[in-house]
Design a protein around this nucleic acid. Structure first.
Lengths: 132, 132, 132, 132
DNA sequence: GTGGTCTAGACCACG
DNA sequence: GTGGTCTAGACCACC
């Protein structure tokens, strides 16, 4: 967890878990580490983990069973929400603007996108599931 | 300026100016509106505009000449900074992760990227140069 | 038993038994399954069943005869406790508030209430008496 | 705020605000008391108020403008989400079951519902807007 | 053991 | 002044 990256810790946690699910490291039905355990592992406060878990639950990505734990719940929806798409396009536009200022060409950009989809973006270690 | 988008107003200003430059609405050497004028146009606090100008100057995109005004200074660098690229790839990865959860496929994604580069994303009015 | 509904399992058990009594599936004097048997059927911990039985007994709805078992004891009281009524009206108010935010009109609401009373809400199988 | 009602304080806050909007005490565009002020008024911790505000924002009922405050944002949607409706019917069923055990008849129940809709349920004081 | 709630108090970015 | 984030530590209900 990068304290000074500017991004909230709980968002970083959310991203890490989402990524692990996309990579297949976490599968539907798998149990996530308990709030306390995750907090210990990631060196953050349990409240911070709880906040991340709750936000993910609100997004329908995980589910919590009181007294039992938290579990991966999601399967990707096939249809795209239009309002979300507008927001996303705005974000993409800003990112591409930045990329252009960095000197990235359209070709290089397309290559980076393809790389992400193709290569499982670099086979990362299981941050959030079993062994750290 | 979208007050409730969650993004800081000064970043939105920065993005708008950067976009105008990419679109050719603002050219190298052009004079930007004064801080006060821009503030009035965009209905924000002058401090907010000043902050945006200062940040853009730090990025080498605009330049202030004391007593004369603020001018577009940049031309895109041809080579890519490696450290910046790493940060960028991280941001891209997060964006693509979100896109996947939204239900966007790789094809659709590539199409969106191509669209941004191709279409000047829809010929917008000069937000930050002439009139609002 | 819906593990992820957020409601405590023992409350769900209580509700199920109460409903069965209202529907006539369980009649006054009928014997309920033993704690162990119910636990096995509903795939919950025996402690959970015991807690539900105890709470129902406290409400005067069932009775335990030591060494013999647990029996349906209740008949509906004709008069309404005023303190209970206040609490109930509060709960109703909250439910109707939520309903309004969901977009339900008064007419639709009245229809839903009538439906519940009229239809025995769909003739369900005996969840908690005979076989599961 | 009733500490021992069993319901979380932040949910009680949410309900109070929703009710005030339905009653017209809070109108679209109105500013809510700041987190700190509301906390002081209701004698709860600012974090608790923040939690309530954030949950309401997630439901689209209020909106926050960073550094400016929190505002009423919503207008009721005309169409009813089917999944929500199922959950609601379940809650209604449980409430009506309890009502029956209390001795409430269908007629009395319909009267209570009509009363809530008709009478603005008793013209309450502005809990959450101007003066307390 | 699990997650949920609440408090107290700190620091920060934004306007 | 506003809300957002994070920590530390407490208590609770549920299983």
């Amino acid at each position: 967890m990068n304290q000074k990256s500017g991004r909230p810790l709980y968002e970083q946690l959310m991203y890490g878990i989402k990524e692990d699910i996309l990579l297949g490291i976490l599968q539907v039905g798998d149990k996530l580490p308990s709030v306390r355990e995750m907090a210990q592992r990631q060196l953050v406060n349990p409240n911070t983990v709880a906040k991340a878990y709750k936000a993910l639950e609100a997004q329908g990505i995980i589910e919590t069973v009181l007294g039992r734990g938290t579990f991966v719940a999601m399967q990707l929806s096939g249809d795209v929400d239009d309002r979300q798409l507008q927001i996303f396009k705005q974000q993409l536009s800003e990112l591409l603007t930045e990329a252009t200022y960095m000197g990235l060409t359209e070709q290089k950009m397309q290559a980076l996108v393809a790389e992400w989809y193709g290569g499982n973006h670099g086979i990362k270690s299981k941050q959030f599931s079993e062994n750290d």
